[in-house]
Design a protein around this nucleic acid. Sequence first.
DNA 1: CTAGGATCCTGTCAGC
DNA 2: TGCTGACAGGATCCTA
Length: 293
Amino acid sequence: MPELPEVETIRRGLKPLIEKRKINDVIVSCDKSFRGKVEDVRNARIEAVRRRGKALLLDLDNDNTMLIHLRMTGQLIFRSSSPEKKIKDFAGGHPNKSFVDELPNAQTRVIFGFETGKLFFNDQRKFGFVQVLKTGEVENEPFIAGLGPEPWHMKVEELHEKCQRHAKAPIKAVLLDQKVVAGIGNIYADESLYYAGVHPAELAGKLSRDQVTKILEGACLVMQKSIDSGGSTMATYVRPDGSTGDYLELFAKVFRREGKKCERCGEIIQKTRVAGRGTHYCPKCQIIRGGND
DNA sequence: CTAGGATCCTGTCAGC
DNA sequence: TGCTGACAGGATCCTA
């Protein structure tokens, strides 16, 4: 999915387009994608656009909040209805051609109608969802309640302790666990570990405090760089020359770079499987200490 | 309690 | 060309 930087990019992009605006209509074309009652959302005004980990939170003026989780392939796409496009279009989330397709299309699950345009919740695999809950209950919602701290609020001590608690799990699995730290997914787990020079399959319990420090530092730096570079949006998906690609090239050193040279040492980046996920690393910069001391 | 694997769903791509 | 299996930027549920 869209990981923390992608969701933050959506939050920033959508905020000026939908905050303080009234939702005139809601069309649900896939029941699985919308949890709750449409009546609790229709005719409500969006008061705030927040984010926690990978979850986007839209607070409404009727004491309800929409929790949106994009999971693997979710997207939020705003199409302005003003003819001269005074209000700009925006698209963020999983980058694919829906960013620029005619909408709705086969992957459109929910449509929110505003006076100024339409917001499409698209999701190829239907893992993502929009969930309506009472604003006061957001903090008690099990997923939200269980989240670890945002990476930049996390203390090295706490991450180190959690590595000890999950001593026999590969460090990558620990980073992907949202209860440990919020917002890291497959891209940023790989990139953080590359930054720190730690092998993804290294057992978490074997890591020194310095290594944990580096990993957390890497997570914060890479995520910030992703946000600063514009994240995964329509603007980064469509290149100036009109061709399509994605924004990974703007910051990724290992993710989807298997077969290419490591920028640090020239070794060929490898792809393998760790924690059940495709995993990219430099076999020279990221040595596994492993062992059994 | 932790760790690991299957599972939800659709689409794409490599290999035969 | 058509089929098949693997895999995908996530999280949960089940089992050991």
